Amino acid sequence: MSSLREFSIRVDNSTAVYSPGDTITGEVFVDLNEAQTCRGISLRFKGKAKVKWVENRHSSNNRRTYLAEENYFGTEVYVVGASHGEIQLVGGQHIFPFTFTLPLNIPNSFTHEYGDVVYSIKAVMDIAWALDPETCLTLTVYSPFDLNQAPSHAIEDELHEEYCWCVLPCVSEGFMEAQIYIPKSSCAVGDQLDVFIEIDMNSPSVDIFGIELRLKQILEFHADGRTKTQSETVERSTNNGPFERNTRINLRLQVPSVLHSGLQHCNLINIMYHLGIKFLVSDCHCDTKKYYAIMIGAKSTVPTEEQARPIPPASAPSDLEIMGIPSIPLVPIPGMIGDSTAISETLNPPPYASAPPIGFQIPNPSAPVDPTVATMPPPSYESVMAEEVKK
């Protein structure tokens, strides 16, 4: 359409990253060369998940497509005009503000070859008997997985591996025993995963020349009763040997910036993580591998029991105060340790206002300011004391 110079969606958040329950505030911007007749301009808010993949069955000519979708919300509202009738927008610039509150139980944004979770805002100019101009803005929703939902526990395991002679498999070359201890089964992005291994090698001819840690991400896509699985190693750490026959080793692996476990509130896509331990052995013997499930999420911001402990009462007067020598008062700095007011407000915040309703809202104009109230002077000290005497 030649009369349309610009048609865009702008949001106040420059990164367009939101959390569940956040309110999106923005505007639809229209710049016209000349007057344009249309039914109106609509906004479509949508959040959905979709998975799709194709499999060959028995032959390349027999292919089946697996497809599934899951909708989280879908709302369409006209910011100007309606679905019937016509209006005329004069030439020049037009701004139509809007707000939209995201639901609480929605999954994190996700993109992959076989599936995605997408949130978007689309503006459409509805023109009768013509191609409707439209513009779209993709939003990113960050929905962290709270590790309090998956209490961590220690992982303890024992390995026993027999080794045989490569030429005569019936001839034993001894065995290896290993005690594995992982202090925690859940961690946050950026944390260190510690692995403690105690090795007892009872083989004179087999050596362990390396131990490798691997953090593997496993993705599951569900559609039509079938599951498509994809996995990749997102982080690894290797400790090169050779090691002594009887030794204790401490291995570490840092958790990289990855999506959190589970992709909660989504029934079509699942994210899992496995920590793999691989013993690299000499000669023709097979390496020993073992995997353990690990949960990755976000650290909770809720104060612990130790942090929420009430502030102790003031201490007894010092010896100087008893002798009549006043002590120098310490003036607390707001926000620092020792400021009881700041601590109390942090541990006991004021009640929050009621959450806004989910969906589209038209912003209300600000209430006018009453000049008599705005210019009214504060009460004097004498008037306040007089009121106290009356009481």
Rank of each mutant, 00 (worst) to 15 (best):
I199P: 04
N148V: 11
V234R: 06
L43H: 01
V258N: 09
A68C: 03
K289T: 14
R214P: 02
N348V: 03
G74M: 09
C170N: 12
A386T: 13
P379K: 04
D12A: 07
M176T: 11
F96M: 08
P151I: 05
N71V: 15
T99H: 03
I325S: 03
G190R: 11
S109G: 10
I218F: 05
T238M: 14
R214I: 09
G276R: 08
N13E: 13
L147P: 05
Q88G: 09
G324T: 07
R245M: 10
W165M: 10
T233K: 08
P242H: 02
F96I: 06
G115S: 04
E113P: 01
Q93K: 15
S261R: 02
S143F: 00
N239S: 14
V80Y: 01
I325F: 10
A355C: 03
D191Q: 06
S327T: 14
S380V: 01
N105D: 03
A49L: 03
G262F: 12
D370I: 05
G190I: 12
P107K: 00
I362E: 06
K289C: 14
P351F: 01
S315W: 09
P103I: 04
S2N: 14
K290R: 15
P20M: 02
Q88M: 15
A355S: 08
R226A: 15
D12V: 04
P313C: 06
Y181S: 15
E177W: 02
Y291K: 07
G40W: 00
L275C: 12
P363Y: 11
K299T: 10
P242A: 03
A178V: 08
P371S: 06
V189I: 14
K391Q: 12
A150H: 09
R57K: 14
N13K: 01
C170Y: 13
L139N: 00
Y292N: 08
I322P: 01
E86S: 13
K52P: 00
S19F: 07
G40R: 02
Y291L: 10
A188Q: 05
N71P: 03
E345N: 14
I277V: 15
D126E: 12
I269F: 01
Y352R: 14
H153L: 10
T23C: 10
V30E: 01
L104I: 09
T101Q: 02
E220G: 12
W129G: 02
Q88K: 14
T229V: 15
F7D: 00
P329F: 05
P256S: 04
P312A: 06
L253F: 06
D116W: 05
Y18P: 00
F243N: 07
L280N: 15
L347E: 03
K290T: 10
H265D: 00
V373M: 15
F29E: 04
S152K: 09
L275D: 08
V11I: 02
P363Q: 11
E232H: 14
N239I: 07
K216M: 12
S172A: 11
G174C: 09
Q192I: 13
G276E: 15
A374G: 05
V281Y: 02
M385A: 10
K290V: 11
K48Q: 13
G338T: 09
P151G: 10
P204N: 11
N71D: 12
P368L: 06
L219K: 15
L32S: 04
M201I: 08
A293P: 12
K290F: 03
G338D: 08
R214A: 13
S327F: 04
F209C: 08
I121M: 00
N62Q: 14
F73V: 04
R64P: 01
V331C: 11
L215A: 09
T37D: 13
